[in-house]
C-alpha cells in the first residue's frame, strides 16, 4: 500500500507542522483531502460509521417520490415552502440560458415546456441537507441546538432550539426551514431514526431508479466508497469549504 504510506508520512509531517504552528488554522489544514473520504474527528479510527450520501444525477427521473416520502416519514408540513429534500429540474436551452424549477419540490411531477430540439441539456437534481462536517449551520447556532453526531449526521434539538433562524441564513444550500408549528429549525435528519435501526432512509426506500445511496465513508470496501472510486463525484459549492458529505455523480457546473 504505497499510497497509504505516503499519506501517513504526509500526515505525520503536517502533524508536526501543526504542533509548531499550533492553533485552529493548522488543525484545519491537517487533512485537506481526507475531508472527502476519511472521518473528521479521528481519521485513524475507521472502525466507526461515518455517514455520507451519494446522488447519481444520471439515474434521477424526477418523479419526486423522494420528496413525497420524506414529507410523509418526517411529518414535514405539506405546504410548498417546507422541504427536507426536493428535486430541481434544470433546462438549458440552445441559447445556453439556464432555467431551473421545482414546483412543489417536484412532488406533483414536472412538465417540460420545451421541445427536445430546443434543449441543449436537461436533467434533474435532487437536493437535501449535505450533512457537512464543517457545517456552517452548526457553527452559527448560538445555543448548541444543532450539532454533528459522532457518526456524522447533522441534527436539530427540537426541545432546545430557540428559533433564531441564524442557521437557516448560514446554510448555503437552502436546506433548512422553520417548522411552522414547532417554531424551530427543521431539516433532513438522514432519517436518523431509521438508519440507526438498520433501515434505509425513506427517500432511498422509494426511489425507483436507485439514484440515491447512503453509506459509510469509513468503510473502504463499502458500496459508497466504491462508488466514489468509480465515478467522478463533486459536492455543491466546494469553494465554501463546508466539508459536504453529499456527493453528486455527473454534477453540472450550472447546479448551485
Amino acid at each position: 500500500m504505497g499510497t497509504k504510506r505516503v499519506k501517513n508520512s504526509r500526515r505525520d509531517f503536517l502533524k508536526k507542522t501543526a504542533i509548531v504552528g499550533g492553533g485552529a488554522i493548522a488543525a484545519s489544514i491537517l487533512n485537506p483531502f481526507d475531508a472527502v473520504l476519511i472521518a473528521s474527528e479521528d481519521p485513524g479510527d475507521k472502525s466507526k460509521v461515518w455517514w455520507a450520501y451519494v446522488i447519481d444525477i444520471d439515474k434521477c427521473i424526477g418523479c419526486g417520490r423522494c420528496a413525497n416520502a420524506c414529507k410523509n416519514e418526517n411529518d414535514v408540513p405539506k405546504e410548498p415552502f417546507f422541504f427536507r429534500t426536493w428535486v430541481e429540474q434544470y433546462t438549458i436551452n440552445n441559447n445556453h440560458e439556464v432555467h431551473v424549477e421545482s414546483p412543489n419540490g417536484g412532488i406533483d411531477g414536472f412538465d417540460q415546456s420545451l421541445d427536445k430540439s430546443d434543449v441543449f441539456k436537461s436533467f434533474f437534481v435532487p437536493k437535501m441537507c449535505n450533512h457537512c462536517h464543517k457545517s456552517p449551520c452548526v457553527q452559527v447556532c448560538p445555543v448548541g441546538a444543532t450539532y454533528d453526531t459522532p457518526d456524522g449526521v447533522v441534527l436539530v434539538d427540537d426541545d432546545y432550539c430557540i428559533g433564531c433562524r441564524y442557521c437557516v441564513q448560514a446554510c448555503p444550500y437552502g436546506c433548512r426551514y422553520i417548522h411552522p408549528e414547532k417554531k424551530v429549525a427543521d431539516k433532513c435528519t438522514l432519517c436518523y431514526h431509521r438508519i440507526s435501526k438498520g433501515k434505509t432512509t425513506a427517500c432511498i426506500e422509494v426511489c425507483p431508479t436507485g439514484a440515491r445511496m447512503i453509506g459509510d465513508l469509513n468503510d473502504d470496501k463499502g458500496p459508497l466508497v466504491k462508488f466514489l472510486k468509480k465515478h467522478n463525484c463533486l459536492v455543491l459549492k466546494p469553494h465554501l469549504n463546508t466539508g459536504s458529505k453529499l456527493f453528486y455523480n455527473s454534477l453540472n457546473a450550472e447546479v448551485r
Binding site: D159, Y192, H193, A202
Partner: peptide
C-alpha cells in the same frame, strides 16, 4: 459529547417510522 444535549440524539432516534420497507 460536544456542545449539545447528548440525549437529544436518542430522542431523534425514537421518532416514529412510517415506511415499512420492501
Amino acid at each position: 459529547k460536544g456542545h449539545y444535549r447528548y440525549s437529544s440524539i436518542a430522542e431523534v432516534q425514537q421518532t416514529q417510522m412510517k415506511y415499512a420497507g420492501k
